[in-house]
Simulated scan of single mutants.
Amino acid sequence: MGRHRRGARREVTVADLIDELSRFDPNLEVRLAVQPRLPQEHLVGAVAEADGMVWIGEGGQQGYAPDEVGEQLGWR
């Protein structure tokens, strides 16, 4: 999700995100991983619609993500 086969970025839609998340246990907590070289763990904040898009706010850094996160996201 978020990249074409050749590595070019693409826009992610609400439907893409719902489809991707539907694979997981709905009781699991959600975090954002940012900064591929040293993944940080951030809470998900408020969600809003503006300017024809859905925005997911960042709810604060919680520390650093485990090494497995970078591997699973294809960052390593």
Rank of each mutant, 00 (worst) to 15 (best):
Q62L: 12
R9I: 03
M53G: 12
Q61E: 14
A48Q: 12
Q62W: 04
H4E: 05
E41Q: 15
R31P: 02
V34C: 06
V44I: 15
R31T: 03
G74I: 10
L21Q: 06
E58S: 08
R3I: 01
E49I: 11
G2F: 03
E68M: 07
A46R: 12
G60P: 08
A48L: 13
A48K: 14
E71D: 14
D19L: 05
R3H: 08
G74S: 11
G57V: 02
D16K: 03
N27T: 12
L17F: 11
P39T: 00
G7I: 03
Y64F: 14
W75M: 04
E68C: 09
G45A: 04
G7C: 06
G52F: 13
R9F: 09
A48S: 13
R6L: 07
V30C: 00
P36C: 04
G57I: 02
E41W: 13
E68P: 04
H42K: 11
Q62C: 10
V30R: 00
W75Y: 07
L73T: 11
A48R: 15
E41C: 15
G74T: 12
E49V: 15
W55Q: 08
H42I: 10
Y64L: 11
E41I: 09
D16L: 04
S22Y: 03
G63M: 04
D51Q: 12
G52W: 13
R37W: 09
R3L: 13
L38P: 00
G60E: 05
I18S: 08
A50D: 12
A65K: 00
L43V: 07
T13S: 05
E29V: 10
H4Q: 09
M1T: 09
G60N: 07
P66H: 09
R76I: 07
L73M: 11
R3P: 01
E68L: 13
A15K: 07
R3Q: 05
L28S: 12
F24R: 04
L73Q: 12
E20G: 03
E68Q: 09
A65G: 02
V30G: 00
E41S: 13
G70T: 01
E71C: 08
E41R: 15
Q40F: 03
G7H: 05
E68T: 06
E71I: 15
G52R: 15
F24Y: 15
M1R: 09
R23D: 04
Q62N: 08
G74W: 14
G70I: 01
V12Y: 05
E58R: 05
G74M: 11
G7Y: 10
P26C: 02
E29F: 07
P66F: 04
R5G: 09
H42W: 14
R76P: 02
P26Y: 02
Q72E: 10
L17G: 01
V47N: 05
G7Q: 06
L32D: 01
A46C: 10
H4D: 06
E58M: 08
G52C: 09
Q62D: 06
Q35V: 01
R10Q: 14
G59K: 02
Q72F: 08
R3N: 04
V44T: 03
G2V: 02
G70K: 05
N27F: 02
V14C: 06
S22P: 02
L21V: 11
A8Q: 11
W55V: 14
